[in-house]
């Protein structure tokens, strides 16, 4: 029990450290790199004096350390500040986009695992065969696609040519009632597909490699020697261990996906966090950028805690380590 507690304690401390690191890195980057938020929003007619006033209003005229201290203090109180350009709380800016990001990345992850795990098993159990090579090749090609090109192709083909699916956005403005959910789903298909293509390769390849390793372990040999059918050895014994690295991957990929789907969101006009970050960069909206990075770091922390938990379930050795 105490070891489990200590493990959990260390995990939380690590999570907090990650958060602090992300906050500090973003804070420093924004202030040390060139760029003047007053100019980003100001009209050219604005005098130097008015620019200075604006910077004062943003609190950017204070010493760096004071700004940093104030920011951390506010953050501890759960206050992310007010957007420079939108003049509404940062939390409301981010919360408007978060659900769509979670929906998109979550469903992409689900689909990827649902398709990736069987494919990985297939490749590992048929290794060296044409099937194996094809699965590997497919996974690698998916990883190497340039999202915008594929996105435009998908939109052209399914949206304009076949007219099966809508062109962009998260839902049609005129959708209402029960039809709204179907509408959301229809808009989700293409961006989800493009994200799935992008990440399925790493799942298939990781699972394939670890399953091959596991199948070579003594306990699998033993199981086979005991006369268990190969199928049972794969699914019952080997897969359980082989899933460990895949689980780690889920944690890593989730963090990567939540903010990293900028290109996908741009092409498919999907209102996610990544696109929001890109827009905040173009407007030099420091509070929104800082808030977004805090949120992304928090997502990573939560995701990696979840995978650790899962790791514990899958592999009891972890807890005692």
């Amino acid at each position: 029990m105490t070891t489990a507690l200590r493990f959990a304690g260390r995990r939380v401390a690590r999570g907090l450290l990650t958060l602090w690191f992300a906050v500090t890195a973003t804070f420093l980057l924004l202030r040390l790199l060139p760029g003047n938020p007053a100019l980003a929003v100001a009209n050219p007619n604005m005098t130097k004096h008015d620019q200075a006033l604006l910077l004062h209003q943003y609190g950017l005229d204070q010493p760096l350390i004071v700004q940093y201290g104030k920011y951390l203090w506010q953050l501890l109180h759960g206050n992310l500040g007010i957007s420079f350009t939108q003049q509404v709380p940062v939390s409301s800016v981010l919360l408007a986009r978060l659900p769509w990001t979670l929906l998109l990345t979550g469903s992409a992850l689900l689909v990827t695992i649902a398709i990736g795990v069987p494919l990985g098993v297939l490749a590992a159990t048929r290794r060296g065969t044409v099937v194996d090579r094809l699965v590997q090749l497919g996974g690698v090609v998916g990883q190497s696609l340039f999202v915008p090109s594929v996105g435009i192709f998908l939109l052209f083909f399914f949206g304009l040519w076949l007219r099966w699916l809508p062109i962009g956005g998260a839902y049609s403005p005129d959708a209402a009632g029960a039809g709204w959910y179907g509408n959301v789903l229809a808009h989700l298909v293409l961006p989800c597909l493009s994200l799935m293509l992008l990440q399925i390769g790493s799942y298939v390849l990781t699972l394939r490699a670890s399953l091959i390793d596991a199948l070579g372990e003594d306990y699998c040999e033993l199981a086979r020697a005991k006369g268990l059918p190969n199928r049972a050895v794969v699914w019952k014994h080997a897969l359980r261990n082989a899933l460990l690295p895949t689980t780690t991957l889920v944690g890593l990929q989730l963090g990567f996906l939540v903010g990293g789907a900028v290109l996908t969101e741009t092409i498919f006009a999907y209102p996610g966090i990544g696109r929001g970050i890109y827009e905040a960069v173009t407007q030099l909206d420091y509070p929104v950028l800082q808030g977004a990075f805090v949120l992304l770091a928090a997502t990573v922390v939560v995701a990696s805690m979840l995978t650790d938990l899962l790791y514990g379930v899958l592999d009891p050795r972890v807890r005692t380590r």
Partner: peptide
Amino acid sequence: LMLSLPVLPLMILIAAL
């Protein structure tokens, strides 16, 4: 810590600035 940073958004931020 480095691996937990959101890479693409940070790249965009730095390259733009």
